[in-house]
Write a protein that binds this DNA or RNA. Structure first.
Lengths: 252, 252
DNA sequence: CGCTTATTTGAGAGAAGTCAAGTACGGTGG
DNA sequence: CCACCGTACTTGACTTCTCTCAAATAAGCG
């Protein structure tokens, strides 16, 4: 579960949380270009970053990078939803994460990408040459620290997801997922409270939770029958009882 | 799966692989104290590190740090085996990783530890105050880069483990685990080739693979019956047909 | 509007879990 | 050194949750 627990931020690294960015007005390109980085950089530094980045936009269902490709680029999602996945020889797939505006990918690999990144919706990203961006870490240590901190957060989420995949029931998995997506929907904004917008297909949800499409669908139906959620459409869910869902997601 | 694929190392970060450490003879305290760090540091820098580190040794089954504790320390395992785990409210447990000499833990968290670390065998670690070690990243950027690179490798392993937990059968999971442990055993040294020394209990293996003890035990028996492995004892396994095991671990 | 694809629903099968019992191992004390 | 005890591991019988296969319904798109 990519659960980002709320609460005070007290990292020993000097970084600032995304929602604490306080120079949006002064830095227009920031919010447009480098969503996740602007928080720790001033306008001049963002411009420095703009020099080595280039837009990379793709339509829904297109591949941004493939498992095994030379890992030349680091990506920053600006708009849309991306899925990262790994496959077994016979085609079984595991989605290791969904990415939303502000998220990065392309760092956690050595010479080749260890996962495939695909656009779930039309996406806008900016892309840096890894070689160049890691050089920039020298000039802008706060940038390096911010990226390190994000990697660390991602590792924590990965551990949460391992607990989900290894030990939770189908029902608990789906509850966790709904809580997670409601949180993401809230962050992205533009939806009523307790709304979870699910841009991905049921198959994606299944491959994220280590289930089959049918099981996911059945669990959705069951939660709706119990009035814990309301399915406005397959991709728009209202959490009618977030507290219960939260509890069930943790096996209480 | 904490699979560290062999192959050339071409990270954009200027770090050196563990097995490329070439000043072991010149730096005695290095191999003794800071297993994973000495590779990128010279003797003087290692001494600098020694100043802020202190020994922290524990017997088998003791807790090194607990989920929810203030995350004050970063640990470097020098000797022995450690398990990291997370628990659900009702006691279901997921082991997110086993740690061996050279491994770190305690960084991937904000103010509190997000997992429990316990000694499987008697362990020797050295412990740094996170506050102090992150300060050191300023003075010794190559140290920061090395730690960042290790975090990145760990994130990749976490993704491999998600694929295992979400999509592999019990048999495939155990094959993956045996390949992984044979690799670790080789790295640690002192055992014949194709030997996998398993310091952890069957319950630990089960909680690592998202299975029950009984299922793990049955799969061990089945692999032995098929002459793919030989169980010298519950904790010492010979891989009789590593190629087949490897193939099966990837679902071929 | 018709076609394709996505989602839901149903029935049956199977892999892994649960519960229970037996066996082997390892440490401790006589 | 061996016997004993507790724990760890293995094995068996049975249950169950999730998967598989199949079909119906709904949604999206040209």
């Amino acid at each position: 579960m990519k659960k980002t627990p709320p609460g005070e931020f007290r990292s020993t690294l000097r970084v600032i949380q995304s929602d604490q960015c306080n120079h949006h007005s002064a830095c227009e390109s920031c919010s447009i270009r480098h969503v996740a980085m602007c928080n720790v950089l001033n306008e001049e530094e963002v411009n420095l970053l703009n020099e080595i980045s280039s837009d990379f936009n793709r339509d829904s269902k297109q591949v941004l990078c493939a498992e095994g490709d030379p890992a030349d680029y680091l990506f920053n999602v600006r708009e849309g939803t991306v899925r990262l996945s790994k496959m077994l020889a016979d085609g079984r797939r595991q989605i290791t994460g969904f990415l939303f505006p502000g998220d990065f990918f392309g760092l956690a690999c050595k010479d080749v990408y260890s996962y495939t990144a695909e656009a779930i919706t039309p996406v806008e990203t900016c892309r840096f040459q890894r070689r160049k961006i890691t050089e920039k870490f020298r000039e802008l240590p706060q940038l390096g620290e911010r990226v390190f901190e994000m990697t660390t957060t991602e590792l924590q989420s990965a551990h949460d997801q391992m607990l989900l995949l290894g030990r939770k029931s189908a029902r608990e998995k789906l509850c966790s997922f709904l809580i997670y997506m409601a949180d993401k929907t809230r962050t992205i904004g533009g939806y009523p409270p307790n709304h979870a917008y699910l841009p991905m297909s049921r198959a994606d949800v299944a491959d994220y939770l280590g289930l089959t499409v049918e099981t996911v669908s059945r669990q959705f139906t069951k939660l709706a029958q119990e009035d814990l959620i309301r399915l406005d459409s397959a991709h728009n869910v209202i959490l009618l009882d977030p507290e219960s869902l939260q509890e069930m997601s943790e096996g209480e």
